[in-house]
Nucleic acid binder design. Structure first.
Length: 853
RNA sequence: GCAGGGGUGACAGAGCUAGGUCAAUUGUGCAAGGCUCAGAACCUUGUGCCUUAGUGGCUGCGUGGGUUCAAAUCCCACCUCCUGCACCA
């Protein structure tokens, strides 16, 4: 463990430096997405958290009372998994999750895992030097948090923003649970890439009102139907489906039942028996026949398919084979401005490759328009026609839906088949509510986003959001107040947690008891609504005051994957539940971190654990690397070799600081340049910081200023102790431990972590310009010396008259640097000057002429 | 499919919302020199091609077009990579 870092972390802790409470100062409230308790932290977290910490520390120097709290998101799913794996093989826990060996062996329940990991996380955060206020720590599974979430959903329900409905999702009948299909998640043994595909079902009917439900992805082409297809060899059934009679494939029976339909098979039959059956098209009433064809996959969807030869190359081919129909008889729907049947033309273009033709045609038609003379949807763009025809038919009760995975076989980790099941009575958060959308947009309007472009995206995302399923059966969390045994899913329970930290702090510090918290309490704190409180009025008022002081939230940090998920929810819920004056002021999108070009993953075993990295490189070096390695609006590619370079670089800065601190100050003229340059950097740095351009700020603080100081010293100058102190203040948000250490080496007794930003200085442009000329001269000389072959010993410089004096002062420096015997500076106006090659005429302002001899 | 973001020199990564001052900041790597017994670190210089007393020219920022006196920067098409799309946090 790095002794300097350990020392200052302890000092900060002892002095309680980062806990915040109401004061006279302006506040700044920021949070990073509380870590999911799913293992120990890795360097990806380090980046996501060090950036907010840099900002928190910067804001502190700018005089803000910074509130930077902490919580834990415990979903239970991961803890349960870790618990199970450790039970079988504790060594897995150490390798895969970075757990300590003793701990891995000692777990008695998933909750133990959770508690253990929370402790690990908190100590890790502190080891990184994060200036968090850990007195707020709360986990989402603690009872007071649960009360808070329940209150939230009761109020949302009061506002009419919750609704109930059906919902389909992957499910395992044997395990009796929902399966999450996610390539990264280990719940799937086969078909992890599967997606759920939604077919529209259109009801064709025969003369007996028996329904032949065809399944399609392109309902708008229903006007071009020439016939239906069934597979002659497959098994079909006639069954009563709820109150109707349907003819579907045998395969479809189970699927329909899974979707919650009451299916009773009346009669079994072969596809061939349906031959020539006449049915009517639900869209236009026209009569078409059923034609058996072996290409039909009866295991897909309903096993009954509509044939649209004009717009489906397969249909076209089989239709021609089956009927010998003339092309002129084929109706088409989408106006492609082609001479003939679109599918025929495209099929020919693709040399008979039907699959390629389908792809090409669908793409073209998606951007096409429906023919004018088609009823209901004529003239609409294809993309809109789909919704329009469904809306039209469903009104008449002529549609339904059926679902399939995009891959045939999907199995869970026990090898059980995964099916698509309809869950009745699921609760949704109704983000489709227009009034609510309006509020959310209004909220976005008054917010800043980082990067700024995200703000432009948000209204589109808000429009796009629909109902969000809210509750689940698995894992840990808060019980949904309106459905026993169901808990609120993990994203829905973390939308307004920032408002809770003032309360969890009160609980942690013993001011407030968990029993004293109830709905009336929240109503009072957040809405100022009077009611009978279980806690003392005084305590409630204190908390309320603190809430009103720190709220609204100034910055919410979250990963880029939250751009369409958590951030919009966060906005919606704030907009619904809080007064406008408490609406959030900003969101900050954190990009991801990959390692050596690859995504970190537990299964790949390339996870770089936070603790290990700190042990090896030190917190400051990591902070430095992660702040500067790439812009914060980019994914970060962590490379060990790079990390080491940054660690070395940091060491050299420390060495330089040591030298400069022990150096005796002189009062050469060049020091004024040093001051001027620093003043200029300081100003630029502040601009970058205000935009949260962390990398640019780091670049200035670490590299530009360092190069300036190097130049200053090569010119014989010495930075003042004041300048060094100020440089440390600038560095301190990035590398707080090193800065603290050298701050004290300079003889300061306070903490640099709570010092204020260096005051702005006047920038002496004249001296910057004058010195720039010396640099130009050095550049030119470097250039010349390289080209000129023979050794030169004397330098003659000719400058504009007003520039001569400054260059004369610098001549000793030039002489030593290039090892000249003699350096002569003269004005171009000087008639007596030595100038055998007439070089003086080449001099320009800011760029002296040179002659070498 | 829908939505969003990228493709820049050996590498990482700026610049591209306000086109010229961009052969392109900075860092790393590499090369030469210095310092050292030697190495590390450190310092200086160089690092597209050609040319040159400090200059000038050519080729260049995914591909192909276009706008313009002028494009890495604006427009169009294409190729390609990444991310999200809902019970996964």
């Amino acid at each position: 463990m790095n002794p300097i870092e350990a020392k200052w972390q302890k000092e900060w802790e002892n002095s309680n430096l980062f806990s915040s409470s109401v004061s006279e100062k302006p506040k700044f409230y920021l949070v990073f997405a509380y870590p999911t308790v799913s293992g120990t932290l890795h360097i990806g977290h380090a980046r996501s958290y060090s950036i907010p910490d840099i900002i928190a520390r910067y804001k502190r120097t700018k005089g803000f009372n910074v509130f930077f709290p902490l919580g834990f998101h415990a979903t239970g799913v991961d803890c349960a998994k870790i618990y199970e794996e450790c039970k079988v093989d504790p060594s897995k826990g150490t390798k895969k999750y970075g757990l300590e060996e003793n701990a891995a062996k000692s777990f008695k329940s998933p909750l133990d895992v959770d508690k253990y990991l929370e402790k690990r996380i908190i100590s890790a955060l502190k080891r990184m030097g994060l200036s968090i206020d850990s007195s707020t720590a709360v986990s989402t599974i603690e009872p007071h948090y649960n009360k808070f979430i329940q209150w939230q959903y009761k109020r949302l329900n009061d506002l009419g923003y919750l609704k109930q409905g059906d919902y389909v999702l992957p499910y395992c009948n044997e395990c009796q649970q929902v399966i999450s299909i996610d390539a990264a998640q280990a719940e799937i043994a086969e078909g992890a890439e599967a997606e759920v595909k939604e077919y529209e079902v259109l009801k064709f009917k025969d003369e007996n009102e028996t329904i032949y439900p065809i399944a399609t992805l392109r309902p708008e082409t229903v006007f071009g139907v020439t016939n239906l297809w069934v597979n002659p060899k497959s098994d079909y059934v006639e069954a009563s489906v709820d109150s109707e009679t349907w003819v579907v494939s045998q395969h479809a029976v189970e699927k329909l039942r899974n979707l919650g339909k009451n299916v009773e098979v009346k009669k079994k039959l072969k596809g061939i028996e349906l031959k020539d059956k006449e049915v009517s098209n639900p869209a236009n009433g026209s009569k078409v026949k059923i034609i058996p064809a072996t290409f039909v996959d009866s295991s897909e969807a309903t096993g009954v398919v509509m044939s649209v030869p004009a717009h489906d190359p397969y249909d076209y081919r089989h239709y021609k084979e089956a009927t010998n129909a003339d092309d002129s008889m084929i109706p088409f729907v989408v106006d492609m401005r082609m001479n003939g049947i679109p599918s025929a033309i495209i099929l020919q273009k693709n040399k008979g490759d039907a699959e390629a033709a389908v792809k090409e045609l669908y793409k073209m038609e998606y951007r096409g328009t429906i023919k004018k003379d088609i009823p209901v949807i004529g003239g609409l763009p294809t993309a809109k026609a789909k919704d329009a025809i469904i809306a039209y038919l469903s009104q008449k009760g002529l549609t339904d839906k059926i679902y399939e995975f995009t891959v045939k076989e999907v199995k869970d980790r026990f090898g059980h088949p995964v099916i698509i099941k309809s869950i009745g009575g699921q609760w949704f958060v109704n983000y489709a509510d227009q009034k609510w959308k309006g509020l959310a947009k209004e909220c976005v309007e008054q917010m800043n986003t980082y990067p700024p472009e995200y703000k432009k995206e948000l209204p589109g995302i808000i429009d796009w959001l629909r109902g969000r399923p809210l509750i689940r059966k698995r894992g840990l969390g808060t019980e949904f107040p309106f459905a026993k045994g169901w808990i609120i899913e993990a994203l829905s329970d973390s939308t307004i947690y920032m408002a809770f930290y003032v309360i969890s702090k009160a609980v942690n510090t013993g001011k407030l008891k968990v029993d004293e918290i109830d709905d009336a309490f929240f109503d009072y704190i957040y809405h100022g609504k009077e009611g009978s409180l279980k806690c003392s009025r005084e305590v409630a008022d204190q908390i309320k005051k603190e809430f009103e002081y720190f709220y609204p939230l100034d910055l919410n940090f979250g990963g880029k994957e939250h751009k369409t998920v958590h951030f919009p929810f966060f906005i919606f819920h704030h907009a619904a539940l809080f007064d406008k004056k408490f609406w959030p002021k900003g969101v900050f999108v954190n990009w991801h971190l990959i390692v050596e070009g690859e995504k970190m993953s537990k299964s790949k075993g390339n996870v770089v654990f936070w603790d290990d990295a700190i042990e090896k490189y030190g917190a400051d070096a990591i902070r430095f690397y992660e702040a500067h390695g790439t812009s914060q609006w980019n994914d970060f590619d962590w490379k060990n070799a790079e990390m080491e370079r940054y660690a070395i670089h940091l060491e050299s800065i420390k060495k330089m600081l040591d030298e400069m601190i022990s150096e005796k100050e002189n009062n050469l003229e060049i020091n004024k340049w040093g001051e001027a340059m620093f003043a200029k950097r300081l100003k630029a740095l502040e601009t970058e910081f205000e935009k949260y351009e962390i990398r640019n700020a780091a670049s200035l603080a670490f590299f530009e200023i360092r190069n300036d100081l190097q130049w200053l010293r090569s010119r014989g100058g010495t930075p003042s102790k004041k300048l060094l102190s100020d440089w440390l203040k600038i560095l301190s948000p990035f590398i707080p431990h090193v800065a603290e250490e050298y701050w004290h080496k300079l003889g300061n007794k306070t903490f640099i972590s709570t010092e204020s930003w260096p005051e702005a200085r006047e920038i002496n442009e004249n001296i910057l310009k004058a010195e720039e000329e010396v640099r130009t001269l050095v550049d030119d000389l470097n250039n010349l010396m390289r080209i000129v072959k023979e050794k030169k010993t004397k330098l003659y410089v000719y400058s504009m008259p007003n520039e001569t004096q400054y260059l004369k002062d610098a001549s000793e420096f030039i002489k030593q640097r290039f090892k000249f015997d003699e350096v002569n500076v003269s004005s171009v106006a000087d008639k007596e000057k030595y100038d055998p090659m007439k070089k003086a005429s080449k001099a320009k302002p800011g760029k002296p002429a040179i002659y070498l001899e």
